[in-house]
Design a protein around this nucleic acid. Structure first.
Lengths: 149, 149
DNA sequence: CATTGATAGTCAAGATTCGTGATTAAATTT
DNA sequence: AAATTTAATCACGAATCTTGACTATCAATG
């Protein structure tokens, strides 16, 4: 994005943090029985619902194109994380339903992220970390609001 | 990464912020005479030095593989952002030297990022934003330190 | 000085991820 | 009933990253 040496900008920091978090998350997921999920799968897994969600809905929530969601779902089906079930309300649509294995992955991914955040919370101190995350949410929201504008 | 609905985790936030920042940065760069730089070019441009830097050094600073840096430099040469000059101290090496156009890009990219940060600083308030960025630096540093461990 | 090992840069092939356009089937609207 | 919209998929291409190997040069050791 821009300079790293003196003062890394927000883009640098966001990129660095994202890559480092991804590294730890998928390393620990691999250790906990999910060695075959890759980062892109996360963009779908994160938005699953035990009751099932349509692919189009997953596409909208994740911001990814329908094709990408389609191939990701293909892979997740092959890996045993989700099933495709016909949607009783609409015969065009299929509901993407997580399997036991899929629910386990989602739960473990959330637990790992929560653990990582707890670690940073202890390091920075509670108030400081909570203020950080609050501000983070707000900055991300404001910056994303610019997108469509 | 994990859930978005209730409480986006750090990975989500970092990813969202990075993408949104990238969108605005490259849109504004395009408006300011740099329509042909793409995000990957930034990982090299950000680490340039007016005096010239070796490709290996760029690779080390950016964390990208030598091949990627090589092809990025190829493209930047074609686009007129940098030149390859022989390194007088080592006949194996070449120094990657920014052109006027390249220096202009780096300056404008930094100005845009600084402007974006100023905007968030006004929105959040100075103390709150400064504390946010301080904490961000620390979290990113600590998380990256885990990488090699 | 000669040989060995390390370093700078590049070539080549493959895998992954993302994007665009078109197609089929079913629902919705007119 | 016809036209439009929507859900999902197919097919192709572009961009990005990874891995392994190769040539030329430097550095170090005997």
């Amino acid at each position: 994005m821009s300079a790293e040496r003196g003062d890394p900008d927000l883009g640098m920091l966001a990129g660095q943090l994202m890559r480092a978090l991804q590294e730890e998350l998928f390393r620990r997921l691999a250790e906990q029985g999910h060695p075959d999920v890759r980062p892109r799968h996360g963009t779908v897994l994160a938005f699953l619902d035990p009751a099932g969600v349509r692919a189009t809905e997953l596409s909208a929530r994740s911001g990814q194109h329908k094709q990408i969601v389609g191939t990701i779902v293909d892979e997740l089906v092959a890996l045993g994380y989700v099933r495709r079930e016909p949607d009783p309300a609409d015969r065009r649509a299929k509901r993407i339903v997580p399997t036991e294995h899929g629910l386990d992955e989602v739960a473990k991914a959330r637990a790992i992220l929560a653990d990582i955040e707890q670690r940073h919370r202890r390091t920075l101190g509670e108030e400081r970390f909570d203020a950080f995350k609050d501000a983070f949410r707000e900055v991300a929201r404001n910056q994303r609001a610019r997108q469509t504008a």
